[in-house]
Computed example of a mutant assay.
Amino acid sequence: MTNVLITFPIKEKFRQELTGKFPQVHFDFSDSIEGAGDKKVTVLVTYGSDLTEEILEQLTDLKWVMVASAGVDKLPLEKLGERAILVTNVSGIHKTPMAESVLAHILSLNRALPLIHEQQKQKVWEKMKSSELRGSKALILGPGAIGGEIGRLLQAFGVYTIGCSRSGSVHDGMDEDISFEHITERLPEADYIISVLPSTPETRWILDRSHFQRMKKTAVFMNFGRGDLVKEEVIVEALQQGLIAHSVLDVFEQEPLPVESPLWDLENCTVSPHVSALSAKYVERALEIFKENLQVWLAENGEFKNVIETKRGY
């Protein structure tokens, strides 16, 4: 018997779909990982943060962890690897809401929407400067499924897109692709530096002060990937010293962002509470990938989607 524990709430219609489609599977919709050690769980469906090393030791029957997130950096990956436990994620389902979030912020800044909103509150009728996207350049760190969709939308607005990845291989939605080794030399020409990189040993703290010193003073830096891409103090310094024009941050070194953080009060910084991937269709899309993989699991035949290499972290 395959025992599946889902540790986050899902709608009743999704519960019925799962039990109806897979009658041979026992589903536990406890919405919590507490007490999981006594349930002989073979498959764990989780957002990831609740699976600690201590709990993992209790799950002696566990064979597969399905993470309903793209990032798996909160998982005890080393221990999972040692036990050869299958780890999969839902990479790809975030591309639509995240790409739309990035585009919304860029258009908002270019068309001076924050200033328009502020002037309305103050009942001020005054023209303001605005710009357009056509003819600009975007350097996209992490041109995978999400980065590729961001690139595709930006290309529709006449933006030249440069994808930057570990390998530098060709990606959809990019006019050009480079490797991490060439970030420094291309930064001076980028109007938008957009990161959707996951947290891995290769990407942690990959940007430092020297990178911001090479950016245009009119550039916008955007981080929608993970908060350990660059130290917060580096971003604060860059904004305070005018090394860049603006920063849009959806992820942070510490979350929730502490109230004492200078980022809250900087006029040239947009603080977003890690919401760019949220969508009413999030859980539905995640469960579709889970159902496909569960069919492979039960048939013991076929290839799993979105398998994570525990040593690499992606």
Rank of each mutant, 00 (worst) to 15 (best):
M1E: 07
I6P: 06
T7N: 09
K11P: 08
Q16G: 05
P23M: 05
S32D: 08
A36W: 10
V45H: 02
G48P: 11
L51H: 00
Q58E: 14
Q58G: 05
K63L: 12
W64Y: 14
A68L: 07
D73K: 05
G81C: 04
L86D: 13
V90Y: 08
S91T: 11
I93Y: 06
A99T: 00
V102G: 00
H105I: 00
H105R: 01
I106P: 01
L113T: 05
H117F: 12
E118A: 14
S130P: 04
S130C: 10
A138S: 07
I146H: 03
G148Y: 02
I150C: 00
I162S: 07
S165G: 13
R166F: 12
G168S: 14
H171Q: 11
I178D: 03
F180P: 01
E181S: 15
H182Q: 13
D191A: 15
S195N: 13
V196N: 06
L197A: 11
L197C: 13
S199G: 07
P201I: 02
T203G: 05
S210A: 11
H211E: 05
Q213G: 14
R214H: 05
A219G: 09
D228Y: 09
D228L: 09
K231R: 09
Q241A: 11
I244G: 08
H246V: 01
D250E: 15
P258G: 07
V259G: 06
W264C: 02
N268Y: 02
V271Y: 12
A277N: 09
L278P: 00
S279V: 03
Y282D: 10
E288N: 09
K291R: 13
K291I: 12
E292V: 15
A299N: 13
N301T: 12
G302Q: 09
E303C: 08
N306I: 01
T310L: 02
